[in-house]
Design a protein around this nucleic acid. Structure first.
Lengths: 371, 371
DNA sequence: ATAAATTTGTGCGTATGTATC
DNA sequence: GGATACATACGCACAAATTTA
């Protein structure tokens, strides 16, 4: 039996198959089809609705109904679940859980599953993870780059994401060569206000500890130096200590002990730390040496993590947007996905990278230098 | 945005997933659904129509609408990607990142993706998460129960996991009625050794703070009481404070202040805490009151989290196997999956629940009572 | 065995909301 | 801002298939 909406379906299908409607071409509007076939709008919508679920057409509110490009259908069929991958260097440490949580919150609200991968800050693992993601059907990827300051051997995999049309964005840092969309904070400015805070308190002999195998550390260090120059405070090269991930446990503690053992005139009166984690570690060393914080020495952390509020001396530190970064990353990746499936041209330039401004959080670990 | 027909869809989906509608069972007629949801027939038909094309339901003219048998669909789709879901109460807080990391490590080594879900310790969210997992193809599920001490309204969903032949295990706690495989620690014994440690140091007036909306807290409290009885130390009922998740911020601090304000003879000399997080919070209160730990009062935590080593007084606490629990859970779920696909009979009884023994970690927050 | 009631299928008219151009 | 197009929602009528009295 031929129902009216089936007649309409057949007629539209014919036009598609004989080439009257080309892929991505707009077909007649619903009211036009009403007149054309002498049926009600309800019937037209029944026909079109069926053909949309069958993959012949797609609709765009406010614009029209279009003929689908059936050559690409194979890619869309396989995946009816919505999945986002998040790659971070570490899963369980420090501020990463907060970032992940922020992203998970937004993504799950929008019906996406979140799959987690960690690289352990290791390029080889990053490679394995990227291969895994490329061989499955993820709708988007959020990446925290591994060792972002070092040239990355896995750039091909990221380019491959692009050619497979899988949107990805980077958080905290980015890989220079790729220029991806990224959600970061202004780490240089963060390092700057961190150090300038100490300078404004009268400190002139400030140790800076920075991890320099990721971009964040390099930028924070740059800010540290800039604060000195801007305020015309001479820099003692011995006061600048850079370390890499695998050295953090030992080198920083050793260097601090060395610097503390100096003769009186040169003694440092303040320390700027790459992050709170390090600050807390160094705080233990200072306690051991019977140095009071902030009485004898001021200490400024970075990230405003839970660690900043946990010790007896609450840390002065720089705010890190943590879960907001996660949330923002989630929103941006959702925009990218939406944009991909919708109309391409107009909105492409509207999704932009985001840079958060750092803010100083003053607590009890820093104070005015005693003259 | 929630449209009316989407609300109806969700409600019907829930009834299918929680077992209210069994496969091939007739669901309410269109006119019944109209009354039930207070919507028009058009809306009901939109919802049902969608779910028919999605494979949840099928219709028979003159007879009714029926629940589809989804057990046979899954096999034909044959997902070749390997996915495990992990459900925890919180993602970013405290010891959970370590647990998740332990599981992720093992699972990713075995080629599985890990998808994360958090319930925020909320049964409603747990329900949504379980519905999501049931409507996709996960190979296994690791669950940290939400409010395990309270009867759980989502038991149907867990039973549905079983009928869909999806293995699941629970960590940290379990739901009494289900008797699932579980990876836990002996929390009663943990509470026991925690308190007995204080008793052995001569303390007799020991406050106990326990969160009692999960099983762990109830067991730890039981251990606290048992330690008193075993050592014939009388229990002052005022010294036992139980609180629930939503009270933790305020009630514990208030109660401690109240107990500290007592007359001299009754003054508590030690505190046993549900976990390190609470211990650190209380430590702040004690500092405020100018009480020295452990000089004036001893403090014992639980979990041996990073928090235990971060303050100036390193906490005496009870070891929690954190990442080992995650790893073990991963191994067990892999065994269950292997068993499911391989030979069934022989090995069924070889996969067993695991209970870890607690161990006391003595640091500086507890010491012998001054006579 | 037949008629009545129930349930889904098809179709029309109308109104309001929202996105796009 | 206004016109156009799709999205959601309500109400009504009749047809076809099935169940039930």
């Amino acid at each position: 039996m031929m129902t009216k909406y089936n007649t309409v379906k057949q007629a539209i299908k014919s036009k598609i198959l004989d080439g009257s409607y080309l892929p991505n071409e707009k077909i007649s509007s619903e009211s036009e089809l009403m007149k054309e076939f002498g049926v009600s709008r309800h019937t037209v919508r029944l026909a079109i609705g069926d053909m949309v679920t069958e993959g012949w057409l797609y609709r765009e509110q406010g614009s029209g109904t279009f003929c689908a490009d059936r050559t690409e259908i194979d890619q869309t069929i396989s995946n009816n679940s919505k999945d986002i991958a998040i790659i971070t260097t570490y899963i369980s440490d420090y501020i990463f859980p907060s970032i992940i949580r922020g992203a998970e919150e937004i993504l799950s609200k929008n019906g996406y599953n979140v799959s987690l991968f960690s690289t352990n800050n290791n390029h080889e693992t990053e490679k394995n993870v990227l291969e895994k993601i490329l061989s499955q059907n993820f709708d988007g990827v959020i990446v925290e780059p591994t060792k972002s300051a070092i040239s990355n051997p896995n750039i091909n995999y990221y380019l491959n994401l692009e050619s497979q049309n899988i949107p990805y964005i980077m958080i905290n840092a980015d890989y220079d060569a790729l220029e991806p969309l990224s959600i970061t904070m202004d780490d240089e400015k963060g390092g700057f206000i961190q150090t300038e805070h100490l300078i404004s308190l009268g400190h002139k002999n400030i140790i800076g500890f920075f991890k320099t195998d990721d971009i964040q550390g390099k930028k924070r260090m740059k800010g540290y130096l800039k604060a000195h120059r801007t305020n015309q405070v001479p820099i003692n090269p011995n006061n600048l200590v850079s370390y890499s991930t695998h050295e953090k446990a030992s080198k920083t503690v050793d260097e601090l002990k060395k610097l503390l053992a100096k003769s009186n005139g040169d003694k440092p009166t303040a320390i700027a730390c790459y992050n709170d984690e390090l600050a807390i570690e160094l705080l233990d060393v200072l306690r051991e040496k019977n140095l009071n914080v902030p009485g004898d020495i001021s200490l400024v952390g970075y990230d405003d993590s839970f660690l900043a509020k946990v010790s007896e001396v609450k840390l002065t530190t720089v705010e890190h947007p943590k879960s907001v970064i996660g949330q923002t990353a989630a929103k941006v990746i959702l925009d990218l996905i939406k944009e991909k499936s919708g109309n391409q041209k107009k909105s492409l330039d509207q999704v932009k990278s985001v840079v958060f401004e750092p803010k100083l959080v003053v607590r009890n670990s820093s104070k005015k230098l005693n003259p």
